[in-house]
Structures are given as structure tokens and as C-alpha cells.
């Protein structure tokens, strides 16, 4: 299943809509990288609201996306992690350390807008 990626101004929004296989996740990683380059995006939001499981593999791919994109000066925000999913993640030791997170899409966009409006970038939560 392909993850739709929407361009909204200087930002890209990838909305995961169903459970993803490893191959789907890898496909998302290359698609996002390609588009960040193509559109010179300032920020990327990955909306994982629909993910009911975030295991070590999915978490690793999200970290890779964030780190690779950061090399181009672009910030990734992961939004919509569900409470139960977060609980299971920390039991597994998956904390997505140093990747900004936000409650939902709206919050994620607010975070990016604030960061790029002030230029230097306010530290996100």
C-alpha cells in the first residue's frame, strides 16, 4: 500500500492510512527523500495516527527518514502516535529520540510554521 504524500506550501505531509509492511515503509522512505529534494521542502510531517503497531522496524525506518532528511536541512515531525502505541514503544525501548513529535497534524504544522517563521527556530517540545 502506497502512502500518499501531500505538498502543502513548503511542507510535505505523508499520511499513513493503514498497517504498513516493511516494503511499504521502505517505499515511503525513498518517496519522501525524492520529494524533499524535488520540492526543496522545509519540513516533513509523517502522520502515523492510523498505525496500531509501531515495532522496532517501523521505528527504525522513521528514524532513518528523519536523519536522512535532516542532512538536507529539513525537519521531520512525527504526529499522531496513539497512547497505547506509545506505551508499547517505550516498553520496547523505542523512543524516537531527537525526532520532534506532535499530537496531531494540526500541532505538527504549527510546530513547523513556528520554527520557520522565527528563522532560527524555537526548540520544539
Amino acid at each position: 500500500m502506497q502512502v500518499p504524500i501531500l505538498k502543502q506550501g513548503p511542507f510535505l505531509i505523508a499520511t499513513i492510512q493503514a498497517a504498513l509492511t516493511d516494503a511499504d515503509l521502505e517505499q515511503l522512505r525513498s518517496a519522501l527523500l525524492e520529494r524533499v529534494v524535488r520540492f526543496r521542502s522545509l519540513g516533513v510531517i509523517v502522520d502515523v495516527t492510523a498505525m496500531d503497531v509501531m515495532d522496532s522496524y517501523a521505528s527504525r525506518i522513521l528514524l532513518q527518514i528523519s536523519h536522512m532528511i535532516r542532512l538536507r536541512g529539513t525537519e521531520t515531525v512525527i504526529v499522531g502516535i496513539q497512547p497505547e502505541v506509545a506505551f508499547a514503544m517505550v516498553q520496547l525501548g523505542l523512543t524516537l529520540e531527537d525526532v520532534p513529535t506532535a499530537l496531531d497534524l494540526e500541532e505538527g504544522l504549527a510546530h513547523l510554521q513556528q520554527k520557520f517563521a522565527t528563522g532560527s527556530g524555537a526548540p520544539g517540545p
Partner: peptide, 13 residues
């Protein structure tokens, strides 16, 4: 510690 980390995953400091 896990509570702190899980809260952050939801976007809260």
C-alpha cells in the same frame, strides 16, 4: 522514565 518518554512520543514535554 518510560512515562516521560511515552508522553514525549505523544508530543508533550
Amino acid at each position: 522514565v518510560q512515562t516521560v518518554e511515552a508522553s514525549r512520543l505523544l508530543g508533550a514535554t
